[in-house]
Design a protein around this nucleic acid. Sequence first.
DNA 1: CCTATATGTTGCGTTAAACAAACAATCCAG
DNA 2: CTGGATTGTTTGTTTAACGCAACATATAGG
Lengths: 113, 113
Amino acid sequence: MTRVSKISESPPHAVEQALITLGRNIRTARLRRRLSRAELAERIGISRYVMADIERGKPTTAIAAYLGALWALKLLDELREVADPDRDLEGKTLEAARSPTTAPKRKALDDDF
Amino acid sequence: MTRVSKISESPPHAVEQALITLGRNIRTARLRRRLSRAELAERIGISRYVMADIERGKPTTAIAAYLGALWALKLLDELREVADPDRDLEGKTLEAARSPTTAPKRKALDDDF
DNA sequence: CCTATATGTTGCGTTAAACAAACAATCCAG
DNA sequence: CTGGATTGTTTGTTTAACGCAACATATAGG
């Protein structure tokens, strides 16, 4: 990513944890399907090294590589629910009545919460 | 990512679609919470430009940036289910009886399915 | 309407992501 | 046990992601 964003350099624990879990899950799914990293990587169109990064939960790896792995393992559907507006109860509540296409204006240094 | 992996350059439709949906969902959640891209980006530790990339579903963006956005929107929990081994029915079936730590050996050019 | 803010776009520099080759270590099947 | 495959590690090269500046456009909200 270059200039490595703070988020990638040292992600919040929750994000780091989510990545590690995701990587482990992908590894488990791969092994269950009796695929080597090289094989799965080839189907996805990445190198075995990036496949290793994924299973390690590397933060800076392109999201397409991760999703490609899920796709090749036929596990991509489960992602559809993530951040689904219909399930975002808190968001729905906050929505009040209108749905602007841009965020509301704020005075320059108003930091809300 | 450099040398742009095939997966990032032209992802399978399913992956591309998943990314676009995810980006749209994140945008919806942001607007519902009345946050500008710059504000959300700052909380995550990325620039507003990357935030725009995320909402556009850019394949080459670091996964940590995406997960950071979900985290800041308190939507990261939903990711825990993705590729959860316990829910991977097909994988469980394939697992037969053992759980090797490496994939089984294959003759060099045996491409299975 | 008018204006401040949000969002979209382009171009550039810096820096590391992705690839590949080579080798070591590990694991599994026979 | 052992041979063959998988996985791990290191090093080096190429190339584009990220951040930023500058500008244009769109939108909200008074």
